[in-house]
Design a protein around this nucleic acid. Structure first.
Lengths: 207, 207, 207, 207
DNA sequence: CATGAATGAGTCTTCATTCAT
DNA sequence: CATGAATGAAGACTCATTCAT
């Protein structure tokens, strides 16, 4: 209808179209608030196509969840990879780099993880959502343990604290108009968060 | 149905019943996921009674939101009131006390604010929800400004960070089974959070 | 609530209050559109009082119907009583007098019969409504038969025609703004209708 | 349900099915009395189909109204078209022809206009209904003005009278059992009405 | 394959009616 | 008696899902 001809696209391309549209609509309307009609319209395809390429509404939501979780996870991992865990004077810099990656992901891709996972923190999807979030936090805990010493398990509450803090700060930045700042927002936010938490983390390490 | 007899109760009592049930169900199922039938059943009244005492679904949700926001707000305020803002050596203790109040509220009343406001961070209720959360954070910013010096505006991002961190830590504690701990969980959590953030905050104050 | 004290009134007075309110509301909202709540509010009493004095909604509507039918019926009868049926040169004058009475009733008491019976010309009340209307037309047929000669049965279609014509003309007058006319509207309308139908009726009589 | 198989039909066909059913049910039960369930059942489709093809209940009712008004209007216009307005000796014949068309339409299609428009002469639809009826009467006034001379405005009350008379007479015929008459009822009714009103109209013309 | 058309199931909301005070 | 409070039943409307083309 949009193109006049109904073009046959490769299945993976269609699937990506559908997922993109779904993420947008889920982010705006919430899990229950989003309708399959709206998703189909946003994707520019018919409703049966949505079912063909995205499956049931629940499956579709789960796929969105998984894709955004993966995206965030790989962003973090990539940012941290180089010379991780060498301890010493650069630990602060490495934390800052990881946080900057997180903030960049979140501020660039607004409708992604942060918005998405909140929709479903209760209800039928509480399980998968929690699992995904715990995955991310677990990864953060591993990194922290490498930097600060100690086992990942003891680092777990600290990781939760850190991720929560980062989300809170990102919320603040996303909430108001900060578009005119000349600095890269990710840099700014990473600096702010490091200033607040690094002294405490450093002290924990030495304890 | 619960009582078998159809008892006449004072309107305020019934309203409380309905609000309590609504908060439970909204917490479990989400705004759109919750049905008025479920709320009526949970409250042990008929659906028309829900409408009579709680109004429309939207009004009911707004009322739940308002009640929990008020509850949390007054908890915080009460905890902080005594000898606030005297600066100096007790600032750390006062922060700890406020955090303990927050954690107590959140861990005691699981289905309260933290769970509730996330349901509606997008969609039709994004506005009210955000406003409520911003109110709480603004209060935190005032307290921080009193302790650390500086204007509430500059304290705002720090407040967001702090609230986010507290929520993250609370999530961790609520997520797994920590019921057997012998210490008061609120104390434990407050100690943990203070350990992470106080050094940084202290440094900010002196800057 | 209106008076502060709930005054005990004689049952008939209460019943009249209720019926008056019911006629108003039924006229404005229609049979199904009117709610017992609205009627109670309009009457200034509580809903159980409406039931106590007016009975079920159906009974109440039937009572309204009956009261307005009676009112119209007696208006007509009264107008026609003096020296009815003397035939001859005054038949035209007597027809005019009856019509004037009809128009006066209808234009004075807008929310009465004309509006009311149309609400229910179909549905559960088709029967009673039709019966009431037929009663009125039958009375008209009797009068016509007395004037024009012939049996009431043969006069029946003529009576239907006449009543329909009167209603149509009344509709016209009620529809637009004719408030500024200096002549009594009932006189005007009666004259108009007589001008159209009398020659034909007169011819019928002689046939 | 009627067909057993769920057949795919052209939208216009389905729309006609739905409109036909709606007119029947609205005629029988009234605007408020009719339920969308009943309309769906009568049409032999599911409720969502009614919404898909007929829209909201209000829209559906408006569509029924419009269709019946158009049908009646075109019937009248068609009947009157040939050599209209030539005045003189045939005016009576032309009036008779128009009335016969009206009566044929009304007696053939019982559940049409006459029944339909009364349902809604008050309430939310008072406006549209009145407008539609006024359209018909205005057309009648034009015709009358062409025949009798004078402007359509002065003919308006006469037109209202005439339409009302025709409706009243039609009511009489529809009310009782006249099925065994050997004459075409439309002819019979037109003759009766012409006998009553023509002399008066003729006199008006010469005045 | 892609789609317009169709539907069963469920949601919010209101109403006529009746207890218990 | 008059009433506020309570409810069973029903109605308008929407949605996720699937045939038939």
């Amino acid at each position: 209808m949009t193109t006049g001809t109904r073009r046959r696209l490769a299945p993976e391309v269609r699937r990506r179209q559908v997922l993109d549209a779904a993420i947008e609509v889920f982010s705006e309307e919430g899990l229950h608030g989003a309708s399959m009609d709206a998703i189909a319209a946003r994707a520019g395809v018919s409703k049966p196509s949505v079912y063909a390429h995205g499956g049931t509404k629940d499956e579709l939501f789960a796929a969105c969840l998984a894709r955004e979780a993966d995206r965030l996870m790989s962003t973090l991992t990539t940012a941290v990879l180089p010379d991780a865990g060498s301890g010493g004077a650069d630990a602060r810099a490495r934390l800052r780099r990881a946080l900057r990656a997180f903030f960049r992901a979140v501020t660039t891709h607004r409708q992604g993880w942060t918005v998405l996972y909140r929709q479903a923190s209760a209800g039928e999807f509480a399980g998968p959502v929690d699992a995904a979030r715990r995955g991310i936090v677990a990864r953060a805990a591993e990194l922290l343990a490498a930097e600060l010493g100690g086992s990942p398990e003891t680092a777990l509450p600290v990781a939760h604290t850190l991720v929560g803090a980062a989300e809170g700060l990102a919320d603040w930045w996303l909430g108001a108009d900060h578009r005119s700042e000349d600095q890269d927002p990710a840099d700014l936010l990473a600096d702010m968060l490091v200033a607040v938490v690094w002294p405490g983390l450093d002290a924990l390490r030495q304890a």
